[in-house]
Write a protein that binds this DNA or RNA. Structure first.
Lengths: 202, 202
DNA sequence: GTCTATATCTCGATAGAC
DNA sequence: GTCTATCGAGATATAGAC
């Protein structure tokens, strides 16, 4: 890796830290340069201006920070205990999504989405991948007659809304909220139960 | 209303506009003063500093912008057609919450919640009132044996997550997303159906 | 490519007159 | 209470040397 590439990486890392911590307008290129231990013109020669720096760096971070839940989802369709498999899958999803750095990044993107709509698109795209894995699993379960899911996409949206979405909502507005012992598990499992009852083969 | 009170009101309105449009760090006291047609020292004499201006003005706006869904919710328990009543109630809720000014305010609060946690508390409190109305209705339905809802609070969270939450999530990251003809109605009614199937008296 | 140094501007906040 | 005028700090961005 060349010296220039190293500096670019250092700027990227520093910029993510500053933007996430202070937001777009609150972060300063001065502080980013200092944190990356480069001069300000180096930042500008690499990224042009503050807006492009923001979009490039946060957009890339969004894509790279994505956790592939596909392999986990593939185990759902053939699991001996469907309920347990769903709880396991959604429990992992919730855990990933509730991590503090996931949440602060999420808040940053939401807060800047009116000024940087492209970021929202990236988020929707990255997030949609998780849904896709579940849609695939549910389609299989329907074909095998385990469940009756005529609209997998709608069903997935409902299942994730009750579990991942509900948990995320709490921490979105209350970053310091501490879930009680077993509260998250209860939230996820009760959501799965509602889902399974509603979409059971009749 | 005294001249001073009029100015305070003008500052409040101008500040809301600037903060919502540009965020906390992006908004300037200069611009707020200009928009309110007062001088900067007038702003400071009324609100002390920028942080207090932000908290006072946005906090107040949150509380005042709250739509009381209680009366609508009271009609649910005694409705002849429970499904229709729920769809009506949640449809109204979704409509209120998807309005562009609700959404931009929501994005502002989320984006600033790490720096102003108190705002998140206010939001949670105001929003919780809507839930409370539904909890009350469901408790009544359970006692009368119409539904079997052992944990109304959990059930309400699931119902709202599938309907209000799901719709809101889409527009949170994609402000310009246009719902197709009937898409929202389908989203709400399918959520209500899942809920009713899962919590039907067995 | 990367630096030092700087141009230019706008920020939050205030002193002092009225 | 409200204004004009201004302070000092810190913002984005760049010129020019190496």
């Amino acid at each position: 890796m060349s010296a220039s590439e190293r500096k670019r990486a250092a700027i990227t890392e520093a910029a993510i830290g500053e933007f996430v911590q202070r937001g777009y307008a609150g972060a300063s290129v001065d502080a980013i340069a200092a944190r990356a231990r480069v001069s300000k013109p180096t930042v500008y020669s690499h990224f042009g201006n503050k807006e492009r720096l923001f979009l490039t760096v946060i957009g890339g971070y969004l894509r790279e920070g994505y956790t592939d839940l596909g392999p986990l989802a593939d185990r759902i369709a053939g699991a001996p205990d469907l309920r347990a498999a769903l709880i396991d899958f959604l429990g992992t999803w919730v855990e990933v999504v509730l991590r503090e750095d996931s949440m602060t990044l999420r808040r940053l993107v939401i807060g800047e989405v009116d000024r940087f709509p492209q970021l929202g698109q990236v988020w929707a795209q990255v997030n949609g991948a998780g849904d896709e894995a579940l849609v695939h699993a549910l389609t299989g379960l329907h074909q095998r007659g385990v469940l009756e899911v005529t609209s997998p996409r709608s069903a997935v949206r409902q299942l994730t809304a009750m579990t991942v979405g509900a948990a995320q909502l709490i921490r979105t507005f209350r970053p310091a909220y501490e879930f009680a012992e077993g509260e998250l598990e209860e939230l996820v499992s009760s959501g799965v139960d509602v889902f399974l009852t509603a979409y059971a083969r009749r």
